[in-house]
Simulated scan of single mutants.
Amino acid sequence: MTSDTDDSSIISECLWAAADGPFFPDWEFSTLFGLSREEVRDLICVFLSLSALSALLSFIHQRANYTRHHADSSDHKS
């Protein structure tokens, strides 16, 4: 099983390869993707930023649950 970080890395690498690699001719690229190569590159940057934000929010949420759980446990010991 892959983590979200691994998935994001794979997706971004595939998009970079599509945008910068020899796989799609220039005359056909925008027809296939509905975007120019530059727009796909911009999209990758946005995707990576959103992936990083998602990871941060997930960490904060998990940390809040951990803290809340342990705070609740300490209240019962008193």
Results as ranks from 00 to 15, higher is better:
57 L>S: 05
43 L>H: 13
72 D>Y: 06
58 S>D: 11
37 R>A: 01
30 S>F: 11
36 S>R: 05
50 L>D: 14
58 S>M: 08
6 D>H: 10
45 C>Q: 15
67 T>R: 09
10 I>C: 06
46 V>M: 07
57 L>H: 12
60 I>R: 12
34 G>L: 06
42 D>E: 12
54 S>I: 12
12 S>G: 08
78 S>E: 12
31 T>A: 01
12 S>A: 03
41 R>H: 05
63 R>N: 01
55 A>N: 06
49 S>K: 15
53 L>N: 07
74 S>R: 13
52 A>R: 08
54 S>P: 00
5 T>R: 09
5 T>E: 09
73 S>V: 07
35 L>F: 11
39 E>L: 03
8 S>T: 06
20 D>G: 03
15 L>R: 06
12 S>Q: 06
33 F>L: 05
12 S>F: 09
19 A>S: 09
78 S>P: 01
44 I>D: 03
63 R>M: 02
36 S>K: 00
73 S>L: 08
16 W>R: 15
53 L>F: 14
29 F>S: 03
56 L>A: 15
9 S>Y: 15
28 E>H: 13
46 V>N: 04
46 V>R: 02
1 M>N: 04
5 T>M: 09
76 H>M: 09
50 L>G: 03
5 T>Y: 15
27 W>Q: 10
36 S>I: 04
14 C>F: 15
26 D>T: 09
43 L>K: 05
2 T>I: 12
71 A>I: 04
18 A>N: 03
38 E>D: 00
71 A>F: 09
71 A>N: 12
78 S>F: 08
60 I>L: 11
5 T>V: 09
35 L>W: 10
17 A>E: 12
43 L>M: 14
3 S>Q: 05
30 S>K: 02
65 N>V: 09
33 F>E: 05
68 R>F: 07
8 S>N: 13
40 V>N: 10
2 T>M: 08
70 H>I: 00
35 L>Y: 13
78 S>N: 10
50 L>P: 00
48 L>C: 10
31 T>K: 10
15 L>Q: 06
68 R>Y: 12
72 D>H: 08
53 L>C: 03
72 D>W: 07
31 T>I: 06
16 W>E: 02
42 D>V: 02
51 S>A: 14
57 L>D: 03
74 S>C: 07
43 L>N: 07
62 Q>I: 00
18 A>K: 07
9 S>I: 11
29 F>A: 07
67 T>G: 01
14 C>E: 04
61 H>A: 04
53 L>Y: 15
75 D>Y: 14
17 A>W: 14
5 T>A: 10
23 F>G: 04
12 S>V: 03
3 S>K: 10
37 R>H: 01
48 L>Q: 15
42 D>H: 07
14 C>L: 15
66 Y>V: 00
62 Q>C: 04
1 M>Q: 09
54 S>E: 13
53 L>S: 11
73 S>T: 07
49 S>A: 14
40 V>L: 14
21 G>N: 01
18 A>I: 13
78 S>I: 10
7 D>G: 04
65 N>M: 13
35 L>Q: 11
30 S>R: 08
52 A>D: 11
67 T>W: 10
12 S>C: 02
10 I>A: 14
68 R>N: 05
